[in-house]
């Protein structure tokens, strides 16, 4: 893993706005975007049309805002700054440096644990179902059951999913395949007075067959597969 301490935000420079933003209640899912990433115009391509008061917003985020604005305008710019930060954030967290920061947060459990009982507290990752803002709110991806959940806290439930993007978890595990958790085939078996319920049991058998089919496909393609269906090697290696 690349450790790049140099690009840590310059220690002689305090990022007031970003410090405030990421430490605000409800913003726990966000990591801090590097100064140098924010000031490289290339990384912001296309955002000037997406964000009202773009330049002021950017100035605010980078702590160089010095406009003597009235409260209303200030409020507008503040809102734009948060929106801009979110949109840049989605781009930043799929960079090497952004991924590192999000992996740290993932390992600390900053994004919560999977609510599914069988996932046994697997840490989650935030993501969007869309890359375009105002389409859907942030979701939490569980890499163990590979499913999406809504944040349990209402202060997270209103965050735009586009601030994390639809590619983020897949990208993270692509870059850090070692972080993919072990999968589990255990499932909840509904029972009545101790007896399995037929409808649920029939579906479970069908699903097991579906998984076996996947394993056969992978084996046919020359993969070595474990009982959970995970690829553990290639045949002949």
């Amino acid at each position: 893993m690349m450790e790049d301490f140099n690009s840590e935000t310059d220690s002689d420079y305090t990022s007031y706005w970003r410090d405030w933003f990421i430490s605000s209640r409800g913003n726990e899912y966000f990591c801090e975007i590097d100064e140098e990433y924010l000031t490289d115009r290339f990384n912001l391509t296309g955002l000037n049309t997406e964000v009202p008061y773009y330049q002021y917003a950017l100035d605010l985020v980078t702590d160089v805002f010095d406009l003597d604005a009235d409260d209303d305008l200030r409020e507008q710019i503040e809102k734009s700054a948060r929106h801009l930060y979110g949109l840049v954030h989605a781009r930043y967290i799929v960079t090497t440096r952004g991924l590192t920061k999000m992996v740290d947060k993932y390992k600390k459990g900053d994004f919560g644990k999977c609510p599914r009982v069988m996932c046994e507290g697997q840490p989650l990752l935030p993501m969007g179902q869309h890359d375009i803002p105002n389409m859907s709110t942030v979701r939490l991806y569980c890499p163990k059951c590979e499913d999406l959940y809504n944040p349990k806290s209402s202060r997270h439930a209103s965050i735009d999913g586009a601030y994390f993007g639809a590619s983020f978890p897949s990208m993270l595990f692509q870059v850090y395949p070692g972080l993919v958790p072990e999968k589990s085939t255990s499932r909840y078996e509904p029972r009545i007075y101790g007896f399995k319920v037929h409808a649920a049991a029939a579906l479970a058998r069908w699903q097991d067959q579906y998984r076996e089919d996947m394993k056969s496909r992978l084996r046919d393609a020359g993969m070595e597969v474990n009982s959970q269906g995970c690829i553990i090697g290639k045949r002949g290696q």
Partner: peptide, 16 residues
Amino acid sequence: ERSRTGPRMKWLRMKP
């Protein structure tokens, strides 16, 4: 699916 990090759990949420 053939990627090491490809989907492995679709069976869990699948029905015919």
